[in-house]
């Protein structure tokens, strides 16, 4: 018996993105399945956030469509859409009276009734999200008292509590030290593969992304490339990414290396 292949969890068709009808990128064709962690990389101002905002319906596409499980994203109501896709934004603003648990609980917003009363299922989702991000011990702490790294985990936990198949994160490792960056990447990979979610994150941490992401979207030179790290290496796409010959990509280690000038000699 023929079984119809499942539609991609998140896909685009002839998508053009940008502001005021002026496309930044045109004819974008993307398709992602559940369980994939996808890094979006581009230099500052290249359009990473614009792509994420278009996928999350914060701004409309200039042309084309975004599909969630094969269904045009325009056809979802705001509440239905919030059950399919959650976001983690840069520069979060929040009421400083909120505790960690209260903030994470807000993730259940699309699922609970008009009084916002948490059911047993809501509560277990919240506790799961807290424990997955290893922040259960911080539950009753005020968010305003947390470090940047801890706060980022709280916002990721909020997105996990929203329990959507797709999570979009805009530069979630900004302002974090190396150890927290490593932790966040690891946790996201774990969530994507174990809970079969599609996770897209815009990042400047290309070295880490190359090591751990299943796919990389490269925004470079007016084009969007979307492939596995291995294919991007094979296609020599990473070598031309930075306009300096002192930033070199080392294929075997999958990392960029920096050659600094020796200033001792110039004395």
């Amino acid at each position: 018996m023929d079984t119809k292949p499942l539609p991609a969890a998140l896909s685009t068709k002839a998508l053009s993105i940008g502001y005021s009808k002026k496309p930044l990128f045109s004819n974008i064709q993307l398709s992602f399945d559940k369980g994939e962690l996808i890094g979006i990389f581009g230099i500052n101002g290249s359009g990473k956030s614009t792509l994420l905002k278009t996928l999350s319906k914060e701004i409309p596409p200039v042309r084309g469509q975004v599909f969630i499980q094969g269904k045009d994203s325009v056809s979802f109501s705001a509440k239905e859409f919030a059950k399919e896709l959650s976001v983690v934004l840069t520069h979060p603003s929040f009421s400083e009276n909120l505790t960690v648990k209260e903030l994470v609980s807000l993730g259940r917003f699309p699922h609970n009734n008009w009084l916002g009363i948490l059911s047993d299922k809501d509560k277990s989702n919240i506790n799961d999200a807290l424990s997955q991000m290893h922040i259960s011990a911080l539950s009753h702490r005020k968010c305003a008292e947390l470090s940047d790294g801890q706060l980022q985990k709280v916002f990721i936990a909020r997105a996990l509590a929203q329990n959507t198949d797709i999570i979009l994160l805009d530069e979630p490792t900004n302002h974090l030290d190396l150890h927290f960056k490593f932790q966040v990447f690891n946790l996201l990979k774990q969530v994507a593969s174990q809970q079969k979610k599609v996770i897209l994150l815009a990042t400047h941490e290309l070295n880490m992304a190359m090591q751990i992401c299943d796919k990389i979207i490269l925004l470079h030179d007016g084009k969007i490339l979307n492939d596995t790290p291995e294919e991007l290496i094979r296609g020599k796409h990473l070598e031309k990414l930075f306009p300096s010959d002192r930033v070199k990509f080392k294929e075997e280690a999958k990392i960029f290396q920096f050659q600094f000038k020796d200033f001792k000699d110039s004395k």
């Binding site: 705001a78 919030a82 959650s86 934004l89 807000l106």
Partner: peptide
């Protein structure tokens, strides 16, 4: 959490 988060929820 601000208008953008509210919209996303």
């Amino acid at each position: 959490l601000g208008e953008k988060y509210a919209q996303s929820m």
